[in-house]
Amino acid sequence: MKVTRRRVFGLLAGAAVAVGLPSVWISRMKTYAGPPSDHFDGTQFFDPDGAPPRQFWEVLRWQLTKKSAKWPEKAPSGHSDVPPPRVTGDKVRFSYVGHASWLIQTAGLNLLIDPVWSDRCSPFTFAGPKRVNEPGIPFDKLPAIDAVLVSHGHYDHLDIATLSKLAAKFSPRVITPLGNDVTMKSYDSAIRAEAFDWNERTELGNGVSVTLVATRHWTARGVFDRNKALWASFVLETPAGKLYIVCDSGYGDGKHFRRVRDAHGPLRAAILPIGAYEPRWFMRDQHMNPDDAVKALGDCGAAVALAHHHGTFQLTDEAIDAPVKDLAVALDAAKVPRDKFVALKPGQVFEI
């Protein structure tokens, strides 16, 4: 195999997004400083019920030996949403932007989840995973954004360029786990980032609140900041019921999902990841496959689930259409109706 400079950068960028292998020039970033807890040792965060991130040699083994399915350069969804200015009352409107990005409208509030409008989710502007379909909502068609939820620091979830554009246009609150606020503000002081720990709750207004909950993942952006910021899922309380938003997570034994059910149930809906899962030996501890996601739906007890984290950026080895096909197989095997776990395309809308 010929090793070119572009391939080296591509390997680094791919690893940076999927597993947090960092870029050198951002290794001096400031990181979180706070008191120790049951998931923070004073230097790094950890999940007592999770798994540590893969070692560097495992990252290289995967990147140098992987046999990825070929994705198309472009895979237009065929849909584009122009949301209403507001959705009032006890309705919820979910608009799928792509990958892990959503616009959720309810109770007169407009909320974005892990917004990524950039062409690449990478520490490099010229290499790394490039989107194969346009965001399901053109940026200039967004309604006024009141708040943004950012789950963790990996490049396919925390997109500084998009957060800066949102800050300049709407100045929304940005709710994120501990330490990610430092990352955001060090790049753009206009980003109104507010950091919270697991199990902390904050009011968003109009009877809507959000609680950060533990999830089976990890994070990094720079050489020396592995797990120096926290990662989380979200439970969004709305007049329509509680929504469980999982942006990245492994399954493990399902404990994280059952805890959310016990502490926050009943759940009206869940957003669950189904993509970026191959090779399984490498990804199982940090990303669910569709079979895991169906189990997670059963564990959390949500009435309905929406699938995401697939079909926009090629982060791992499976084919572009594998997650949706595998989800159908997993639902049938578990005897779960297919309309209970819906996979939208960017630009499509789901309402409850």
Rank of each mutant, 00 (worst) to 15 (best):
E203A: 15
T183I: 15
S122L: 03
F234A: 08
S164M: 07
A144I: 10
V148N: 02
G153P: 04
T162S: 02
G207R: 09
Y187P: 00
T202D: 07
D188N: 15
S122D: 05
K242T: 11
A232R: 03
G179M: 08
L236D: 14
L142Q: 02
A190Q: 14
E194K: 04
H154K: 08
S164C: 11
D159W: 02
A214P: 14
L230S: 12
D197I: 11
G207D: 10
N180F: 01
I160W: 13
V150F: 00
K165H: 08
R216N: 08
M184N: 00
A193W: 04
F124C: 11
T162F: 01
A214E: 13
A229R: 12
D188F: 04
K130W: 04
D156I: 01
A127G: 06
L149H: 04
P172T: 13
A195D: 03
D159M: 01
V148F: 02
A232F: 09
K228T: 14
V150W: 01
P172L: 12
G207F: 09
L178M: 12
T125W: 14
F224I: 09
E203S: 14
R201L: 06
G153F: 01
R120E: 03
Y155T: 10
P172C: 13
V182K: 09
T183V: 15
L142F: 07
I160L: 15
E200M: 08
V182C: 05
H157C: 13
T125C: 13
G179V: 08
A144Q: 11
V208M: 10
S122E: 04
T215H: 02
I160H: 15
G153S: 14
R226A: 14
V132H: 03
